[in-house]
Simulated assay, not measured.
Amino acid sequence: MEFSPFNNVIKLCLQGMNMEDKNIPEEAERLFLQAWEEAADDHEKFLAAHYVSRHQKTPADCLKWLETSLRFALKINDDTVKSALPSLYLNISKCYEELGDIEMSKKNSGLALLLQNHPSDKGPFYHGTKADLQIGDLLTAGGTSNYKSELKMNHIYFTALINGAGLAAALAKGDGAERVYIVEPTGIYENDPNVTDKKFPGNPTRSYRSEMPLKIIGEAKEWAKPSPEDLQKFREKLDDSKGEIIN
């Protein structure tokens, strides 16, 4: 299941988060409840319940919504959702701790730790760029960030979503053609901390990074390209971003 910011339930969640940023919690809660009411499948229900939980007044009510979110998450055999399980279990653990159930708190914190540092995603993986490369070439860390020209990257980044790699190619610096390469990690990799458990639970964009090279094993020829309008919105968002890149 590919994460899409254009999904209506996800749009409502984004609007709710915007209200949280503006310190209007009542409107945020209304939007999250609307997302829950409109959720039509397990993935949408998992997301909406997660956000509704953030506006509960008691640990018991928060726990109820978190466990609802977990119930739907466990129904889905999808790496986008699996990446959210550590934070779900950790938040459930905190609720049990507040309720005085130390045994259940430890059980859930143990599950969170077990899943936290072991991405289950097996790909295929993609890297978007404007560089003209060949099959067998290695992509290595040490390049300049596409988003902050003064920053030298200690990791090489990639994704399991071809359209996400296509967006990265469109945003990449340079005048060359947009290229999406199929890549294979040559060493261990981890969830990209710049996107994991930020706005959305887990790693919905299935974005990863590694200190080890990526080997190019092929090139994708087709992906959904963003419209000029959407691309401009992404560029403006990057220009306005005040967040620090975790490198």
Results as ranks from 00 to 15, higher is better:
E190L: 13
Q134K: 15
S149V: 05
Y147F: 15
E184Q: 15
K148A: 15
N163H: 15
D192H: 01
T186P: 08
V180G: 03
L139H: 11
D197R: 06
Y181E: 03
L138I: 07
G187T: 08
G176H: 06
K148C: 14
L139M: 09
T159E: 03
L138T: 04
N154L: 09
P201V: 00
F200G: 01
G142V: 00
L171D: 07
A168L: 11
A172H: 12
K130T: 08
G136T: 00
P185H: 10
R206I: 07
I182Y: 07
D137K: 06
F200I: 01
I182P: 09
D137I: 01
T196Q: 10
A177H: 10
G128V: 01
K148Q: 11
T140W: 08
Y208K: 10
S149T: 13
L151S: 04
T159C: 02
S145E: 12
K173W: 06
V195L: 15
I182Q: 15
G187Q: 07
G128A: 02
A169P: 02
D137N: 14
V183Q: 12
A172D: 13
G142H: 03
I162S: 10
V195K: 07
I135Y: 07
G176W: 08
A168F: 15
T186G: 10
N194L: 00
Y208W: 13
K173G: 07
G202D: 04
H127I: 03
G174Y: 04
K130Y: 05
E178T: 02
V180A: 01
P201K: 01
F125K: 00
E190I: 12
N194R: 05
N191P: 04
N191T: 04
T144V: 11
R209F: 12
G202E: 04
V180S: 02
S207Q: 15
L139T: 09
N154K: 12
L138D: 13
R206P: 10
A131I: 00
G187N: 09
F125S: 02
P204C: 04
N154R: 06
G187R: 00
Y126D: 03
Y181Q: 06
F158M: 10
F125C: 01
K198L: 07
I135E: 14
F158P: 09
G128W: 02
P185G: 12
I182F: 08
A169S: 13
A165H: 08
K199F: 06
T144L: 02
L171H: 07
V183I: 13
V180Q: 03
H127G: 08
L151H: 08
K173S: 12
A160K: 06
Q134N: 14
Y208S: 03
A131R: 14
G142Q: 08
